[in-house]
């Protein structure tokens, strides 16, 4: 136990995974302390699911070492599985079992005592008591997600690996879901959660951004934004669509995003960006204000950088 407190809940070094000669995760080093909520972000196909699978022993890394809860991810995968709750990206409960039967199955596999009470408790928390005998396959997409989360929490894991747990979940349920995650983390549970939502990233204690299999940034949201060195201006006025199209072609500008009556422009070089925006200052119908870079801007920058590096390599 003492060793597990000293080492981070997740501690992996130089993880690598290849499929048919194609490297999909490369030199991935990650530490997640106990009781933390760690966001895992990155574009589609960047290797998030693959990394999570390596962490819980479902895939064997081609290189690298590491521990989960102090247990070796290759040699002690069986013991890791007992203490980890893994929620898959694709719904993987039995559609032809009822909600209750699914939960009971999971409970029995983990050899839990007091099964009836625990399942009952989980159903109450999910607010699914009245529908417990309905087949899981008949649930709507969002409810399936919620059931899947309940089932991977049933055995009281010490580490949660959630792969896009809120995809297709309504805002209210998403809010409840994150409240629940924070409550669990406060009790000492460690959570690694992959997501494509920026607001969810902001609710994490720390995030890691992965693109094309390589970790591009990690730290708190503010750290990641700060370290990116992005400078942002907001343009307010009319005729913004035309301006946005012109700016997007400009190599001094990294991102341009239109939000109704405002335009969000960012770049890495303060002076170059100012020069690019100079012609707009002359237009009396437009107003320029210094803005703040968002996580989204940073991610677009990181994605471009990694793509450029990949091409250079």
């Amino acid at each position: 136990m003492t060793q597990q407190v000293a080492t981070p809940a997740i501690d992996v070094h130089g993880l690598e995974k290849r499929f048919n000669g194609k490297t999909v995760v490369q030199d991935l080093t990650l530490q997640v302390p106990h009781g933390r909520i760690y966001g895992f972000l990155g574009p589609n196909g960047s290797g998030k699911t693959t990394t999570i699978r390596m962490l819980c022993g479902l895939l064997t890394p081609d290189a690298g070492t590491g521990t989960c809860l102090g247990l070796d991810i290759v040699k002690e995968a069986a013991r890791i599985k007992r203490q980890v709750g893994y929620m898959t990206q694709r719904f993987s409960l039995y559609e032809d079992l009822s909600i209750r039967e699914n939960l009971e199955f999971v409970g029995r596999v983990y050899g839990m005592d007091d099964l009836k009470r625990r399942v009952g408790h989980a159903l109450e928390r999910l607010d699914l008591v009245s529908r417990q005998h309905q087949l899981a396959g008949q649930l709507s997409g969002g409810w399936k997600q919620r059931l899947a989360l309940a089932s991977c929490l049933l055995h009281e894991p010490r580490l949660l690996l959630l792969d896009e747990p809120t995809a297709g979940v309504d805002p209210m349920a998403r809010r409840e879901f994150w409240d629940e995650i924070h409550r669990l983390a406060a009790e000492g549970l460690t959570v690694l959660v992959s997501t494509h939502y920026m607001d969810e990233a902001e609710r994490c204690h720390a995030i890691a951004y992965i693109a094309y299999g390589r970790l591009m940034a990690k730290g708190t949201v503010d750290e990641v934004i700060g370290r990116s060195g992005l400078v942002t201006w907001t343009v307010i006025g009319s005729g913004l669509d035309r301006i946005a199209r012109a700016l997007a072609e400009d190599s001094r500008v990294v991102t341009v995003a239109a939000f109704g009556t405002t335009l969000h422009v960012s770049g890495t070089d303060r002076d170059a960006l100012a020069a690019a925006l100079a012609p707009l200052r002359a237009d009396p119908s437009l107003r320029l204000e210094p803005g703040e870079a968002t996580l989204e801007d940073v991610f677009i920058l990181l994605m471009r950088q990694s793509r450029a590096e990949l091409r250079a390599a």
């Binding site: 479902l58 898959t88 694709r90 993987s92 999971v106 596999v109 983990y110």
Partner: peptide, 14 residues
């Protein structure tokens, strides 16, 4: 085929 294998393998069943 139904994708339930992934969850089954992630559980401690031999």
């Amino acid at each position: 085929e139904r994708g339930t294998m992934e969850a089954l393998l992630a559980m401690p069943v031999r």
